[in-house]
Structures are given as C-alpha cells and as structure tokens.
C-alpha cells in the first residue's frame, strides 16, 4: 500500500481560537510499499499527529489537504475505517498499557475478533498462535496466563502480537523501544526486520534515536514545527549536520565520525550503518598504510 499525503494540515481545537494549535502544516510525503521509513523530530514536532492520520484515528480536516493509503481515500467522507485499520497496524508508545483481557490469548485475539468476525475458532487459534510465536514467545506456555503477571518485556511483546495478529501490510510504530534496555532494544529491532521480511510490507518507525534510523531505515523524514524539514536516505538527511543541531536533533555516531574523518581528508562514504562504516573506515586507514 502506497501512502501519499498532499498538503496535509491539522489544527487541534480548531473551533476555539484561544487554544487552537496547528500541529501539521502542508505536509506532503510519499511512502512507497516496502520501505522501512523513519520519522524523526523533537517532541511536539507533529510526527505523532501525522502517523495517527494514517489509520484514521485522526481524520483529515476539511479543506486541509489530502491523504490516501493504498486504495483508501482518507479525505473522502465515507472511508471504510475498519478495513483500513485491519491493514494498517499501529503500535503506540508503551503498548503494554493497552492490555486488558483475562488471558494472553484473548488479548491477542481482540483485534482479530473485531476485524474478522467470520473466522472459525481453529483459524483464530492458528493466527493467535502464529502472532505470539512471531514475537518470540512460547504459545503453549503463555496463552492462558493473565497478561498482567508477565514481565515488562513480555507484556510489550504480547501487545505487539495483538497488533500484528491481523497481518497488517503497513505497521506504524510510535517510539516502540522507549524504556527498553539495550538488549531488549536490539531484540526488538530484530523482530521488526523479521516482520518486514514476512507479511509486513511497509514499516513506519517514529523514533528519537538517530542511530536506530541510520542502522535500519531505507528513508526518513524530519518533522519540525508541524512541517517536513527534509526527506531522504539517512545518508542525505544526516549530511546536514548544522541544520539538525539547530533543530535540536542529534546525528548518528557514524555520521559524526564520517564528518570528523572528512576533516582529516579521509572520505569514508559509507551508508552510515555501523558495519559498512567500520569496513570502509578500516579499508581507508589500514589500506592506506599498506
């Protein structure tokens, strides 16, 4: 599903001028099917407001641009939100806080029961099992437990299983690694790549962590004060060091090092992933010596 926003504008509390607050202003952005897309920006830059448009949680306001997700036209009055939401999954910050059911199985099945009412019990169980195993948990061990007796990391996995159980083509994640420790973070990114390799075609990742962006994303967009500041590959985006610092954003360690090395006359020119950077730097330095 291709995502295309044109001049998307959104204002909170539009009716009362005293507290109305423009969150998005003329945002135009295309995200192609198959991308691992990063969305970066400071808190309050409009990135959350933008992604919540993608599955109709926030509706496009009147005369405020257009938005289409695959065959769904979100500007149209009649848009089948249910069908859209079953195909655009959304993982919120701290998703473990949305768990509610008595058992893990029921919680994961919640979306399935809402979206696909005609499923047989066997089919439902098969899908729930698949989702729980995909996030790296043991189905038999965990299915009848209460979600509230699990550890923090397990809770988050169960919550993710509850989103991917409908096998969405697009998966939007808002700060999904917040609060995870380094190993938890690494495992989580592995899970995302696993999903991207199977049924999830497009991943849209909202994050503050620039190293996560340079390490994983094909392309990314920077939001600033409700507008899109720039769009491109991590390489293109992070070449703009001064501007990013001005926006209060960091750059990945690899981009920083490339910049420092360039000052010394070494042009590494990697794709900014850690391994590519290390390979090319080693070649430039060790190779130069020999």
């Amino acid at each position: 599903m291709r995502i295309e926003a044109k001049d998307l504008t959104f204002t909170y509390s539009k009716k009362s001028k005293a507290i109305s607050n423009r969150a998005l202003e003329n945002v135009s952005l295309c995200i192609e099917e198959g991308e691992f897309f990063g969305i970066i920006g400071q808190t309050g830059s409009g990135k959350t407001t933008f992604v919540q448009h993608l599955n109709g949680l926030i509706r496009v306001q009147k005369d405020s641009g257009s938005l289409s997700v695959g065959e769904f036209d979100l500007t149209a009055k009649k848009c089948d939100l249910k069908a859209l939401r079953s195909r655009v999954g959304m993982v919120f910050q701290y998703p473990e806080y949305q768990l509610f059911a008595e058992t893990v199985k029921d919680d994961v099945a919640f979306g399935l029961r809402n979206f696909k009412k005609e499923l047989s019990l066997e089919e439902e169980e098969r899908r729930v099992k698949l989702a729980i195993e995909t996030v790296g948990l043991n189905y038999e061990e965990i299915k009848d437990k209460s979600p509230f007796e699990l550890s923090g990391g397990q809770k988050r996995r169960v919550a993710i299983a509850g989103v991917i159980v409908t096998e969405p083509e697009v998966l939007v994640l808002d700060e999904p690694v917040a609060g995870l420790d380094p190993v938890g973070k690494r495992d989580f990114m592995k899970l995302l790549h696993r999903l991207h390799a199977s049924f999830v075609k497009t991943i849209i990742l909202v994050t503050h962590d620039m190293n996560v962006v340079s390490e994983n994303c094909t392309r990314c967009a920077i939001f600033s004060h409700g507008k899109i500041h720039s769009v491109g590959s991590p390489k293109e985006i992070f070449s703009n060091y001064e501007q990013l610092i001005e926006l209060g954003l960091d750059i990945p360690v690899t981009a920083y090092l490339e910049r420092e090395l360039k000052k010394l006359g070494i042009d590494v020119d990697s794709d900014l992933t850690e391994s590519d950077f290390a390979d090319k730097t080693a070649k430039a330095i060790v190779g130069g010596k020999q």
């Binding site: 420790d181 380094p182 190993v183 690494r186 850690e274 950077f277 290390a278 060790v286």
Partner: peptide
Amino acid sequence: CGLELPVSSKIAQKLIELGV
C-alpha cells in the same frame, strides 16, 4: 548481563577487529 556497549565503543571494537 543484558547490556551493550555504547555505539562508539562498539564501532571502535569493530575497527580493532578489522585491524585498525
């Protein structure tokens, strides 16, 4: 212990492995 080196240390480590 479920911890990881900071990105800079990790890159340094990789460079050392590659003979830098």
